[in-house]
Design a binder for these strands. Structure first.
Length: 344
DNA sequence: AACTTTCCCAACCGCGCGGAA
DNA sequence: GTTCCGCGCGGTTGGGAAAGT
């Protein structure tokens, strides 16, 4: 159908904002409040796109923004949350009052992702997203609350199957947005609280997501990988609870105790896994696949994926894993589970 | 001092989602 | 049920600053 441009592009100013523009925008929002971004520039007398105004306000002009460097606590929080949520910058920002998603994203890309790459020498996996279920494709757009809801419904149902299932995505109990948002917040809070993460482990985990490429590759890959492994059919969608269940005692992965197919601490004795949310057994000999990668890395398709997988450790590990037929079957089973849930 | 490279961050872009019409 | 619109999100880009040669 073709999509109308977000705003008339002709005659609009781009680039850095001037002080006058900032003042005009701030003044207008102070008087009229946020919202109606599309019409705001016109009303405020700005030659800017509404989106640009919104961004400027959110990232720079808002009064409640915290200025200055990211503190160590914040940094740790970011690492934790990133391990849990992936590149959900807005969600991460939600846990860091006064920080914007853009700020956190930039900070991650410029500081943390690099540091994550620099440290450790363990398994480094770069996953070709296109080979994942659903193409592993992630584009822009908001986190689908419907997916989140569906996923958690699926978990609930798995726990207590009901006779009849209501088709969930369009929840009649409005304001769903508020409810869902609250639920999401709660869920994330729990995730952040329960995620057993040490920075070191996070680094290792992050490294699992990005190999050690050239700087430019590193930059985009870390983004892409992180994005990919938490892609639209992602851990968040699957939800903490679901992943816990999948990683629980009854799960194939837990029973397998894979040594090779997983992304784990390189030194073999690293701290608890960042993504091993609430399932860190403390037994590092039993590698637990980071749940960011859970199900994304199908060893049975290792040959297919070989080009896109880069292992920065002994190949033996992978070879061993690749030859475990039973493990493959169980992984396949897990994959189909995940795929099923993804497609809810 | 001049030039080049790298880093950082503000801003832009394209897309998906939800809701209204 | 479909289309359109507004909004928000994540990825990417571009330019200035800092560091290196």
């Amino acid at each position: 159908m073709g999509r109308a441009p977000c705003c008339e592009k002709v005659g609009l100013k781009k680039g850095r904002w001037t002080k006058e523009e900032d003042e005009a925008l701030a003044k207008y929002i102070k008087e009229h409040g946020e919202g109606s971004w599309r019409s705001l520039p016109k009303n405020a007398g700005l030659l800017r796109c509404g989106k640009s105004c919104r961004l400027r306000w959110i990232n720079y002009l808002r009064a409640d923004l915290k200025r200055g460097n990211i503190s160590e606590e914040e940094e740790e929080m970011i690492i934790k949350l990133h391990a849990t949520l992936g590149n959900r910058w807005s969600l991460i920002a939600g846990h860091l009052p006064g920080r914007t998603d853009n700020e956190i994203k930039n900070y991650w890309n410029s500081h943390l992702s690099r540091r994550a790459t620099d440290l450790g020498d363990g398994v480094v996996v770069d996953i070709d997203l296109s080979k994942l279920p659903g193409g592993g494709k992630r584009r822009g757009g908001r986190t689908s609350r419907g997916i989140v809801a569906a996923a958690s419904n699926a978990v609930k149902e798995k726990k207590a199957p009901k006779g009849k299932e209501k088709k969930g995505s369009k929840d009649k109990e409005k304001p769903a947005k508020t409810k869902a948002a609250e639920a999401e917040q709660q869920e994330l809070k729990e995730a952040a609280d329960t995620a057993v993460v040490s920075p070191a482990r996070s680094q290792s985990q992050s490294q699992c997501q990005s190999q050690t490429p050239t700087p430019s590759e590193e930059h985009s890959q870390s983004q892409a990988s992180a994005s990919g492994v938490t892609s639209e059919e992602d851990p968040l969608a699957l939800s903490e609870e679901m992943m816990s269940e999948l990683l629980g005692p009854g799960s194939p992965m837990m029973e397998l105790g894979l040594d090779g197919g997983s992304c784990r601490d390189s030194d073999g004795g690293g701290g608890p896994a960042a993504g091993d949310v609430a399932h860190d057994t403390g037994d590092n000999d039993k590698a637990i696949m980071d749940w960011d990668l859970m199900g994304q890395l199908d060893i049975s398709t290792v040959d297919d994926m070989w080009d896109s997988l880069v292992w920065d450790c002994d190949d033996v590990v992978l070879r061993e894993a690749g030859h475990h037929q039973q493990q493959q079957q169980e992984l396949d089973h897990l994959m189909s589970d995940l795929f099923f849930l993804d497609n809810l």
